[in-house]
Design a protein around this nucleic acid. Structure first.
Length: 286
DNA sequence: TGCCAGGCCTTCC
DNA sequence: GGAAGGCATGGC
């Protein structure tokens, strides 16, 4: 099997895949810092040693550009981390703890469904549900004698019922998923067309789907639409932002106030800062 | 047992 | 437009 080797800078595979923005990558036991997962139409096995990535796949054509795009390797994160470290001492500390996190560019439809599932849910169960949906409806790929499944297209999910989704463990979100799949099919939604919209327009489009509220919309915008200026606020980020920046008013702080703070202070780097904060607070580092 | 999980929808004011 | 209550399910 061919393997490609890429030089990278300011990149940490572990932090990037374990900071909660994606749900399907699996750390292989008995292999050092090696992950296996799916990017668009192929299975990827990837390992990092210092500033080198070692990558294998069932599909070798365009592999380099697919990996570059997915892991956002075209961008200079040294510059970004230097800039945001100057914002304040909290950010500096967080970035120092998790240097090398990158914002992934994930598939739009998969991200929409994944984050609908994420609402009021926990990460292990989110992963199980997404894997179950892929296994039942996605294309099977054999790689190194194991079976993997692509995330299904809207067409592949066209005949799945609400009850079918419920069997994948998504609970009350089944009807939201069913509804969203129907909208994708009826309106023939393609990311290519949506990508021309402004962030505000695109958010409003997403908010029309059942099961997508402000937080889920912002995650979709950040993790699959290259909108780095959004600042998704979940319970963890709300907690840490309140304790870091709103200590005096902690009893009546609103999400609106936190978003305004991020807009003013973090600006176009809100998204990457949010990921550092999320990783740090969940790992108990700050 | 009761509470929580990367919130959102519906109902009611 | 804003505040409550309900929601599937599994882990702790």
């Amino acid at each position: 099997m061919d393997e490609i080797i890429l030089d990278v800078e300011c990149f940490n595979l572990k932090y990037t895949l374990e900071c909660g923005q994606c749900f399907r990558w699996k750390l292989l036991p008995n292999e050092d810092n090696t992950y296996i997962g799916v990017i668009s139409d192929r299975v990827i096995k990837i390992r990092q040693e210092k500033d080198k990535l070692y990558i294998k796949s069932n599909k070798i054509d365009n592999l380099e550009s697919v990996v570059y795009n997915y892991f956002d390797l075209y961008k200079n994160y040294n510059d970004i981390e230097n800039k945001i470290s100057k914002i304040d001492k909290n950010i500096k500390k967080a970035v120092n703890n998790s240097s090398g996190i990158r914002i992934l560019n994930q598939d739009f439809f998969e991200t929409v469904i994944s984050y609908i599932i994420s609402a009021n849910n926990n990460i292990p169960r989110i992963s199980r549900s997404i894997n179950e949906i892929s296994k039942r409806y996605g294309k099977k790929i054999i790689f190194e004698n194991n079976e993997y499944y692509l995330f299904p297209t809207p067409n592949q999910l066209a005949n799945a019922t609400e009850e079918d989704f419920r069997r994948c463990g998504v609970g009350f979100r089944a009807k939201y998923i069913k509804d969203t799949v129907e909208q994708f099919l009826n309106d023939n939604i393609s990311y290519k067309e949506l990508s021309n919209k402004s962030t505000e327009e695109l958010r409003n489009t997403l908010l029309k789907f059942k099961g997508i509220g402000p937080k889920v919309a912002d995650c979709i915008l950040l993790f699959s639409c290259t909108r780095g200026e959004v600042f998704p606020i979940d319970v963890w980020v709300e907690r840490i932002m309140t304790s870091l920046y709103f200590k005096e008013q902690k009893d009546n702080i609103k999400k609106k106030d936190i978003i305004q703070y991020a807009d003013n202070e973090f600006k176009e780097y809100s998204g990457i800062i949010q990921q550092h904060l999320f990783y740090n607070v969940r790992e108990g580092l700050i």
